[in-house]
């Protein structure tokens, strides 16, 4: 009876693990991993992520391998007699030094990428981002776009959120805004980031750009987008009730399309400025 129960437990464990693994593979299309993204930095970050991941896998194979081998063979039920060793300075030194070397090998490329990520100098244009509970404001600070400014809030209908309308037909559920931030490709864009109330965080996974918007302080970050497209992210710092409902959408356009967009905005901005003057 006891054996039967433990058999059943073991079997159900195997089945569940297998089930878990297959569902994971089946769900590959839903995204299992960090996106490679569309900037040089995001690609470097992805490579670092995969490097440390495979290092961890290699260590895991050795560590878990030794453990499972031991659990399989060094059992009392197999009549294995316990050894009595309990100390070895040499072994302790070896397994202190080897991880240390691996860490140094890891730290060098990580430091290089980090330094690159923080080099905000010599940018082509600057956009100021301000977080509000619960929307974003974008202001273009220089060049032809100077003076363009707008708010950007969630545009997913409330009915879809509370279930009165079908959300399954909306591929961008919770990841869509009324006014997206439009940026040119191939230009070094510097962002100045702040907040008007509580701390928010501006994050686009495809750019590997994430930083906190802190009220009363200005943070800097930068990106160069390689490919035109629509890129989506979300606020990444708990900012109250609607923290889950302040997405970020960036539309990256190549030079001619960006200029076309800009000329429309400039007209609109001039109109807006006139209204404010009156």
């Amino acid at each position: 009876m006891k054996k039967l129960i433990s058999r059943t437990v073991q079997l159900s464990a195997v089945v569940l693990v297998a089930l878990l693994l297959t569902t994971q593979f089946a769900a590959a299309e839903y995204g299992l991993n960090m996106p490679k993204g569309v900037t040089q930095i995001s690609n470097e970050v992805y490579r670092l992520h995969m490097l440390i991941f495979w290092i961890c896998v290699a260590i895991a194979v050795v560590v878990y391998g030794a453990m499972f081998w031991s659990m399989m063979f060094h059992r009392k039920s197999r009549g294995f007699k316990a050894a009595t060793f309990h100390h070895s300075t040499l072994v302790e030194i070896v397994w202190t030094v080897i991880p240390f070397i691996i860490l140094i090998a890891m730290a060098i490329p990580a430091a290089k990428t980090l330094i690159a990520m923080e080099s905000t100098g010599s940018s082509d244009m600057t956009v100021k981002i301000t977080g509000y509970q619960w929307k974003w404001r974008y202001e273009y600070l220089d060049g032809d776009a100077k003076g363009v400014s707008f708010f950007s809030s969630l545009s997913t209908p409330l009915e879809q959120i509370n279930g009165d309308a079908d959300r399954n037909q909306n591929p961008n559920y919770l990841l869509e805004v009324d006014n997206a931030l439009v940026l040119p490709t191939g230009k070094k864009i510097r962002f100045l980031l702040t907040s008007s109330d509580v701390i928010h965080a501006w994050w686009i996974p495809d750019f590997a750009v994430k930083k906190d918007a802190v009220p009363g302080f200005i943070n800097e970050m930068w990106t160069v987008i390689d490919t035109p497209g629509v890129y989506r992210g979300q606020c990444a710092e708990l900012c109250g009730k609607d923290h889950g409902f302040m997405p970020i959408v960036v539309i990256a356009k190549d030079e001619p399309e960006y200029t076309a967009w800009l000329s429309q905005q400039s007209d609109a901005a001039i109109q807006q400025a006139k209204i404010e003057l009156e």
């Binding site: 031991s70 060094h74 059992r75 294995f80």
Partner: peptide
């Protein structure tokens, strides 16, 4: 970043010691 990575060393030592304790023991579960 560097100081955080360093914590992996003593933590690793602990895990290795536990496995070395199991190694060639006479285990029951």
């Amino acid at each position: 970043m560097f100081s955080t990575m360093l914590i992996a060393v003593p933590t690793g030592v602990k895990v290795f010691n536990w496995i070395a304790t199991m190694w060639r023991g006479s285990m029951t579960f």
